[in-house]
Amino acid sequence: MKKQSVDSSSPLNTEGINTNFLYLMHIHDSAFPIGSYTQSFGMETYIQSDDILTKQKLFSFLKAYVSENLLFTDAIFVKEAYEHFQNDDWNAIVRLENICDASKNATETREASKMMGKQFLRGILPVFPDEGLTKWKAALDNGQVKGHFPIVYSLYTLKMAFDLFTTILTYLYSSTISLVHNGVRAIPLGQKAGIEIIHKLIPEIIEAAKKAMNLNLDDLSNHAVGLEIASMQHAYLHSRLFIS
């Protein structure tokens, strides 16, 4: 994506701004439902065990979610997928998607990632019938791939000519922010607390995206073991607001 031009301080000057950015904003707003508001990826287990009850606790949890979980899991899949799609290396993509599926140890988290990927595709294909996305849909239908969200997300952003850093950054942002919304609803906390948490998380997200640019599949790590176990235990909670 091109950078804003020097005199972009004027709101009337749109020259040099990648106006495609609006499409990216759209796929992350609530009018483009991919189901993230129904997923907590294990967070709900901690809310119910009273481990996350305050604004500070939710912030610390999400800071760890970005820097110890997403950075070493999905951010790497987003990056590797982007590069394989860029090289048009279909075999590498299919292998990566298989590894992405296998690496998600907790059943509910694995299912959530697939479900979001499928819903994203269902939403985007009718309005953006791109050849690559159509091929992806066919691979999904014939069982060659499982449909994980970080992979198809990269395919879309590449086709829309967004750069790799923007792709990782926005993926991390949307994954984290949807958990803020869900946390605020489930704990519950006020809207102001949510805003405050998001503002404090943004520098963490930027930092993680920068680090992710230097990682590859060898750096994959499931060391957020607590969250993984929380996600496995989620299925056994008595009452649940979220699917995962």
């Binding site: 294990g42 901690y46 481990d51 996350i52 606790k57 610390s60 949890f61 760890a64 979610y65 820097s67 110890e68 979980n69 070493f72 690496s103 140890n105 750096d219 994959l220 790590s221 499931n222 060391h223 957020a224 073991v225 607590g226 969250l227 929380a230």
Partner: peptide, 17 residues
Amino acid sequence: DSLKLHPKEQELQQLSV
């Protein structure tokens, strides 16, 4: 399944890790 434990660079002893 990979586990990369680097205690100096990561904050391992916190909730969810």
